[in-house]
Amino acid sequence: MADAEQDAVGRAILVNAAASSTGSEYLTGASSGALPARATRRPRASTVLLGAILPIALLAVWQLISESGVIPSYRLPAPLTVWQAAIDLAQRGLLFPDIAISTQRVLLGFVFGSILGLVVGSIIGLSRWASLLAAPTVGAFRAVPSLAWVPLLILYLGIHEDSKVVLITIGAFFPVYTTVSGALSHVDRHLVEVGRAYGLGRLSLLARVQLPAIIPTVVSGLRLALAQSWLFLVAAELIVSSLGLGYLLKESQDNGRIDRLFAAIILLGLLGKLTDTLIGFGERYLLRRWT
């Protein structure tokens, strides 16, 4: 997990560099290589169609396999059975509360974690003293495997919402913290100096020069944080909960309802993709405004 974050930081910084070095290409519209340009392009129908080929093929193969009887249905339910299980759950009013509570937990944890990550990342990224004093400690906390927090959080905060939201907050915090603190130390020295020369104090320098300069990196960090939030949600709900998609997974496993298990997994995938797409829209707006 930590490796994945590091990779993302590296990638984001590279993207940043690419974005600034290809600035002149915007003029000629030849900015094929830069990610911001790609991100600002609206998805065309052909893009959507191409992306849909693989899921449809998977669905067809799945249907063929379950029809052929090679794998028994208690191990691999047919797509239609899974669909019916989802409809059944929805009709009994059991599905939407699960989806709602899980989404709520993810969004709350994501928002809290991102804000904290932004604040702590800014402080540590900008202040040499804060970095010397606190960066090793934050690094050590990051090294703790996320699930190790669960027993402690349950002891402290009980099995209700608080412990789950806090766990997700922890999950969302680190990608944002790492990307922000890393990127702030790479902001173009020249631009920072201009800000200083025109009398900007530390806070207005951060707001007017440094944060805008790292927007592409911050957005990458946010996307990563959102993915982590869903990961931590399922971890939290699998361990202890009475509602939510993780709970649906656990309960389906206990009752041998493999059709519901499949439905829950697919739902998690869809929700994760949906929220990521929403961030993608935000990203497109931010990059258009800030690059």
Binding site: G23, E193, V194, A213
Partner: peptide, 8 residues
Amino acid sequence: QEPRLLPW
């Protein structure tokens, strides 16, 4: 020497 304009 460089214009050092904020690109955004």
